[in-house]
């Protein structure tokens, strides 16, 4: 048996509010809704050199601008190099980009007409770590990741096919390139 002394009106209001908070706490802890994307999950995905596939997160990124901006902020904050500047405009080629201590350029393969070579030259100054991922963020804040091979003699170099998604991104002067 439980006996309760009835409070006055103010006390009853306080009790009702208290009851609501306890009920809400229980509702939060008990679930009943689909989980959203947490900042930690987004951060882990942004910072990983090779993130695990996360379809829900990627779908949310596609749909949500705020999420994409945050993701881009995370990547940018952790970037070793930032290459925002396009050195020279080009009508048909892909303009090289330069950042502090690094340069990225693309050259057509001499051996295969449908291939291009992406070249990242790093000065390695200040004991900077070698980047493992090239992230290209377009003007709608969609960031695209491209894992990098290891650097050799201060150069990271890889071949892509002409239809590789990296090429239009590098061709677009509005795209920001981040190395991390």
């Amino acid at each position: 048996m439980i006996e309760i002394e009835m409070p006055d009106e103010a006390g009853m209001t306080a009790a009702r509010q208290h009851f609501a908070r306890l009920s809400e706490t229980r509702a939060l802890l008990d679930g009943g809704a689909d989980a959203g994307i947490s900042a930690g999950r987004l951060y882990a995905h942004a910072m990983a050199a090779a993130p695990m596939p996360d379809a829900a997160l990627e779908a949310a990124l596609e749909q949500n601008l705020a999420l994409r901006r945050t993701y881009r902020d995370f990547v940018a904050a952790g970037a070793i190099y930032r290459l925002g500047e396009v050195i020279a405009a080009s009508t048909d080629g892909i303009p090289p980009r330069r950042g502090v201590g690094c340069r990225i350029s693309v050259t057509a393969s001499q051996a295969e007409a449908d291939q291009f070579i992406v070249i990242l030259e790093l000065d390695g100054g200040g004991g900077a770590a070698t980047p493992a991922v090239l992230v290209l963020c377009d003007q709608s804040d969609r960031c695209h990741r491209f894992p990098l091979p290891s650097a050799h003699r201060g150069v990271i170099q890889f071949i892509v096919q002409a239809d590789d998604p990296i090429l239009p991104l590098l061709r677009d002067p509005g795209t920001e390139a981040l190395l991390r």
Binding site: E24, G32, G40
Partner: peptide
């Protein structure tokens, strides 16, 4: 519908943390 004063957004925002796990699968 949810039986809560919190709407789906609120519950989803909280569940995002409640269901966060470490790499080993333990609760964050």
């Amino acid at each position: 519908l949810l039986g809560s004063g919190a709407d789906g957004q609120f519950l989803g925002d909280f569940r995002a943390l409640a269901e966060a796990t470490s790499i080993a699968g333990a609760a964050k």
